Simulated assay, not measured.
Amino acid sequence: MDSSLDVLIYAHDGRGLGHVSRSVGIGLALRRIFPDLSVLLITGCASTAELIGEGSLDWIKLPSYKTSVVCGKSSGVKGNSNIDDKLLGELRARNIRDIVAAYNPRVFLADHTPQGKHKELLPALDVSPATRRVLGIRAVVGEVDKVWSELAQGVFKANYSDILWYGDTSVGGAEEFARLEYHYGVRPYEAGYVSRLAELREFQGSEPEVEKLAGVVSIPWSGEGTAVLLDKLAQTLSGIGAKHGNWHIYMDLREPGVMAAISCFSKLENVSFMQVGPQFLRDLGNSRSAVIYGGYNSLTDVMVCGVPSVVLLRGMKDNEQEKHGAVLAGKSSVIRGVFSDHDVSVVQLRASICACLESSAEVVSVNLNGAAHAARYLAALTGVCDVDCES
């Protein structure tokens, strides 16, 4: 095969960072374990460079999608390019097709769905016929129509050969694994949970000893109830006081209306607001507690660090976070409380955060080596193998 690229990774984008974070983690693992392989990531996520941090992974930026969430249902709106969502999908489809045609990758890894967001991967299926196409799926999909549709099933069977499942049957059982196998007609490869943080730690030097934070809070994207949640959080931290130390709250401070929403913290001198970025991972590893949303990426982060955490759920229609949070809460002692961000009370937040602060870091038994396992699987498909590739 006359190829200019070994592995091309496509990351779904639009809302949250979980899809891109997993893709970055696998890309970093490929570059670390197989430094001679050529690897490229394509996505529209504007935070990709911050997610890669000091890692060695190159990427191509597509114009970003943007998603609005109302009553738990997401819908596309104009992104930073100010191009209509549907038209942007058509334009990105041409971009992706041209990239695949130019680089002619040996292996193409698509995140989440075989057709891509707004079916933008379909035109690329007509080029580079020798490319081995692989679908990557998170541990708990939830009721995402675009994953379980007849279209996705047909596209996969006609153009894809492999599935990487980023889960652990010893944690959540085999139901999701079996459902994927039945729907797509291929037995998935169980890679384990993919953690970008675990990959970044592989090449980070030892950090100097600093005073531990009381905790970190991660709100990577704002929704319709964020202002109310922030007010509850301000009341909670005010009631806990400053005796446990400082808090860092990570948000996208560039989003409209955020600065007004955080004004309720103005009297809390031990609370600082930080822009979402790589510093969050360092702070998380140096924290006694955390408050996170129940996305795949955030859950793997706290499990890698063993930080006792309160998990908030956004109440999306696909129920993915509810299902995943319930599974992990029963298996991982780092998760000390799971609540709806809309319904949680100040009393519940305070009690759960105090329980975290009184706990110590935990060792987690969940398989968190998914990035390395996925990298070895993909490398084997390019024709490269190492002594651990079957592990």
Rank of each mutant, 00 (worst) to 15 (best):
104 N>R: 15
218 S>K: 05
82 N>Q: 15
363 V>K: 14
288 R>A: 10
224 E>L: 06
283 D>T: 06
295 G>E: 09
178 A>R: 09
130 A>C: 13
201 R>V: 00
170 S>F: 01
139 A>Q: 13
133 R>H: 09
333 S>T: 09
317 K>I: 13
125 L>T: 13
284 L>H: 06
320 E>Y: 03
21 S>K: 11
323 K>S: 07
47 S>H: 06
117 K>L: 11
149 S>G: 08
91 L>I: 12
293 Y>F: 13
55 G>M: 04
322 E>G: 00
113 T>Y: 04
84 D>V: 10
303 M>R: 10
259 M>L: 12
17 L>N: 11
51 L>M: 15
70 V>R: 12
43 T>H: 02
320 E>T: 09
292 I>K: 02
289 S>Q: 05
120 E>R: 10
157 K>E: 00
49 A>Y: 01
132 R>N: 13
265 F>I: 08
105 P>A: 15
32 R>S: 14
57 L>S: 04
102 A>S: 15
63 P>T: 01
69 V>Q: 06
13 D>C: 00
96 I>H: 09
159 N>S: 12
239 G>R: 13
169 T>I: 11
94 R>C: 12
105 P>W: 14
15 R>V: 04
351 A>E: 15
292 I>P: 03
191 A>R: 02
200 L>D: 01
16 G>T: 07
31 R>P: 05
380 A>I: 02
375 A>G: 10
347 V>T: 13
92 R>H: 05
3 S>M: 08
55 G>W: 02
305 C>L: 00
154 G>S: 05
18 G>T: 09
235 Q>C: 08
30 L>I: 05
308 P>L: 07
110 A>D: 12
19 H>N: 13
339 F>K: 01
75 S>D: 10
213 L>V: 06
153 Q>W: 00
54 E>K: 12
164 L>A: 06
65 Y>G: 00
269 E>H: 13
251 M>V: 07
172 G>L: 04
261 A>I: 02
196 R>G: 03
145 D>L: 12
124 A>F: 11
40 L>K: 10
144 V>I: 15
363 V>H: 12
126 D>Y: 11
192 G>F: 03
217 V>D: 07
366 V>Y: 03
368 L>E: 11
25 G>R: 04
59 W>V: 00
10 Y>T: 05
70 V>P: 00
76 G>R: 13
56 S>A: 08
153 Q>R: 09
381 L>I: 09
52 I>Q: 04
228 V>H: 08
281 L>F: 05
152 A>E: 05
127 V>Q: 14
350 R>S: 08
3 S>T: 15
381 L>S: 08
252 D>T: 01
242 A>N: 14
117 K>H: 11
